[in-house]
Amino acid sequence: MALYKINVNGKEKSVEAVPDMPLLWVLRDLLDLTGSKFGCGIGACGACTVLVDGVSQQSCQIPVSSLGTKKVTTIEGLSKDGKHPLQKAWIEHDVPQCGYCQAGQIMAAAALLKKNPHPTDAELDDALGLNICRCGTYQRIRDAVKAAAAGATK
């Protein structure tokens, strides 16, 4: 066990963990940030997607010891008031069904729009291609990301 200082949602947090504990479990079990979901544990489903220095990453694949001073953003820190254009678009387009995968979907979309504010369909498919939605909300995910990119949310 070792003490790690990590930057999550703009705040420095101290956690005591084994070096190989994935960021996902640090967030969920040690920091009570349960918005990032456990879906596979092998980086194959995207449910645990967070931003690390603004880039979309699977938090189940990041050992806490590798984080250093990198800045982690989770769904809880995506916006102060839940009004990120993607969050608004997700509500307006009624994307969630069970909702379990949606934090990961939104974070992957947020990373995409940050580097590419007006993605093509192919770029959108590519950026969110890892994220599984078992309920099959894909059509609305597409619609919502496009609406957010177009600035079409209320």
């Binding site: 940030l33 349960t34 918005g35 990032s36 979901k37 989770t74 769904i75 809880e76 995506l78 839940g82 993607l86 969050q87 997700w90 509500i91 307006e92 009624d94 994307v95 969630p96 069904q97 909702g99 379990y100 949606q102 934090a103 939104i106």
Partner: peptide, 16 residues
């Protein structure tokens, strides 16, 4: 009517 849990889902507050 959009899903009543949407605001909690998109902010990570929804509890499973």
């Amino acid at each position: 009517r959009t899903r009543i849990d949407n605001p909690d889902v998109v902010t990570g507050k929804a509890q499973y």
